[in-house]
Nucleic acid binder design. Structure first.
Lengths: 198, 198
DNA sequence: CCCTTTTCACCTAGGTGGTAAGAT
DNA sequence: ATCTTACCACCTAGGTGAAAAGGG
């Protein structure tokens, strides 16, 4: 049976055109990708993982005046295709099914040389998250069954554009509304003059 | 092969007579109990857990003037004997052996009605932490082998007296020295008079 | 008197977006 | 112009000991 993606929040963002921040140090996703899982063998071991595939081979830019995304040319060279294993992997089916599985430790970066195992994406490109379940086959010749022990699920509403700063004002606002604790700082105290005296 | 308890810090405290704070809400141990493990089957599953047994059947009190612990009578009725499973359990031997295993999530409480699964201890009593390794036997009739699949380790230097507030001044000082970040607040702002007006 | 509980200021650890400066 | 980066104030979440109050 297909796992479910609790998706109210994703739908809200998807309507606006979800944007995910990527930074050099790595940024968590918001919304977080989470799934409710059904139909596993409670006693068997499974690995859960995610990866991200380009939606198309285009680069985008955001037109502020029209508040819309425009194609800005062909995609930049693909980034290293990394995967993120859910840190509880491997675990028994019973464990995974007990509650919603949340990928809140996953981080996105635009640093091609990232050394922290984060997912590397190109800013201004569109991505589709994918969710994979791997059954840990106890049989000796388990490689032979790799195909059948591997299942992939795609939730289209989780597509997004990677950005280094929110582009669409309404997405930023939605983000702030979704997490009331986020401070909206209005201004920064005047910084000292940079260096009139070297 | 016997696991090792990194023990420099434990020895320091043990010389003074280690005291562990217990609170109603639960308090972490300091020092933390941690072990380096050797000799597991890398591919097999193991559970790691701890429990605490009374060192004797006595109750103690601390004599400030002589800075020493005195026997204050027979032990209070024993507390429910709980165990604490390391939250990563079950996991493969390879995983456990990869690095030092730290029981830093374990909490001690004096609340007999505790509902958070914390370890319940009697204040002013002495305890010996114990560390257990359970091999998860894949055989059908695994109960029959319970004995051989279960190993217990005791590190005597980790004995302590449970207290609700540090008794020995030098233990308190040692604690503060061990964690430089701990604030030593000198005084509290005068509190408003309690209720001259009910 | 001896011990426990409550409260609270203060700390760590880590994530967040705005701003301004930097880069291309 | 357009996008990226560094910096930083501000937040959450949770642990900590001291002091003060409470209890037997």
């Amino acid at each position: 049976r297909t796992p479910a993606q609790p998706s109210v929040r994703w739908d809200e963002f998807n309507q606006l055109g979800t944007e995910m921040i990527v930074t050099k140090a790595g940024r968590r996703m918001f919304p977080t990708f989470q799934v409710k899982i059904f139909g596993m063998d409670p006693m068997a071991d499974y690995m859960l993982l995610m990866d991200f595939v380009p939606v198309d081979d285009k680069r985008y830019r955001y037109a502020f005046h029209s508040s819309s995304w425009l194609v800005a040319g062909k995609a930049d060279p693909a980034t290293p295709g990394r995967v993120h294993y859910h840190p509880d992997s491997p675990a028994k089916g019973a464990q995974w099914m007990k509650q919603i599985v949340s990928f809140d430790k996953l981080k996105l970066t635009n640093n091609l040389l990232d050394d922290n195992g984060h997912i590397i994406l190109n800013s201004m490109h569109r991505y589709q998250p994918r969710f994979h379940v791997v059954y840990v086959d106890p049989r000796k010749d388990s490689e032979k069954y790799a195909e059948e022990n591997f299942k992939t699920f795609v939730f289209e509403e989780t597509r997004f554009t990677a950005v280094t700063a929110y582009q669409n004002h309404r997405v930023r606002q939605q983000r702030i509304n979704s997490a009331p604790f986020i401070a909206v700082r209005r201004s920064r105290p005047a910084s000292p003059p940079r260096s009139s005296l070297r």
